[in-house]
Amino acid sequence: MFKTTVVIDPGHGGTDSGAIGNGLKEKDINLKVAQMVKSNLLKHKINPILTRDKDLFVSLTNRCIIANRNNARLFVSIHCNSYADAGANGIETLYYSQKGSELAKVINDKLVKATALRNRDIKQRTNLSVLKKTKMISCLTEIGFISNANDSKLLKSNEHLSRVAESITNGILLYLTEH
């Protein structure tokens, strides 16, 4: 029935709110987008597994265990960025390995094109547990700065979040088609 399994990780949750800014909690945005991505992937016969499907704390280790036990082909973690300088803005996607850079690039490109937010590009990060300890190709996408007035205004919009989810979905589908 399903072509492949993809784990979608809505960052933070439960007692870990993630970044807070401009009336938003990162954990809530991440979950909303992840649920939309899940719904989109199901339409394409992809088996999407969320590391959490409600406002619940899941340790970084358990997020990796969920992905590894389900033999996922891809792992995509969804986050919002934050920075002390409220002028920082845009989209960036992080990866651990060279193979992950290809997934990060297609997702990042789709997000930037669909949202017209600043392209902060892809960046290698070797210190992120969810990228380092997952056995499959993985990336972590930062869908905007919760600390930035313009980005957070967009993050409050269901229409914008739907575009973000569609972009992540399209990036996943393109990657799976090409690999």
Rank of each mutant, 00 (worst) to 15 (best):
N62T: 08
C80G: 02
L74C: 09
K133W: 12
D85P: 04
K113C: 10
R69P: 10
E166Q: 15
L174R: 11
K54T: 04
E102P: 00
G171N: 07
T126P: 15
L103W: 02
L155I: 04
K43V: 08
A88I: 03
I91R: 00
I143C: 00
L42H: 03
L56P: 01
A114V: 07
N89K: 13
I78P: 02
K99R: 09
N119W: 11
G100N: 01
L154F: 06
R163H: 11
K132Y: 10
N68E: 12
L56W: 05
R120I: 01
K156H: 08
N62H: 08
L173Y: 00
E102H: 09
Q98G: 08
A67S: 15
S152P: 00
G87H: 07
H160K: 06
F57N: 10
K99C: 01
D55G: 04
S129I: 15
N158E: 13
L176G: 02
T177G: 02
L128K: 12
H79P: 07
G87M: 08
T93D: 07
K132L: 12
N68H: 11
I143N: 00
K43E: 15
L50T: 14
A72P: 01
Y96E: 03
N150C: 06
A84I: 15
K99T: 01
L103G: 02
S97Y: 00
D85L: 06
N127I: 14
Y95G: 04
H160S: 07
V112A: 11
A114S: 15
T61N: 14
F145C: 04
I91L: 00
T93K: 11
Q124S: 14
R73K: 15
A88L: 04
I49Y: 00
L128Q: 12
I168E: 06
A88P: 05
R69Q: 15
N150D: 13
K156D: 01
S157D: 09
E92D: 06
C139W: 03
K45F: 06
L176M: 09
K113A: 13
N89F: 08
A149R: 03
K156L: 02
H79K: 10
N150V: 11
K110F: 11
I146D: 07
E102A: 11
L111C: 05
I91Q: 01
V164N: 08
Y175P: 01
N62F: 05
T51E: 05
T61H: 11
R118G: 11
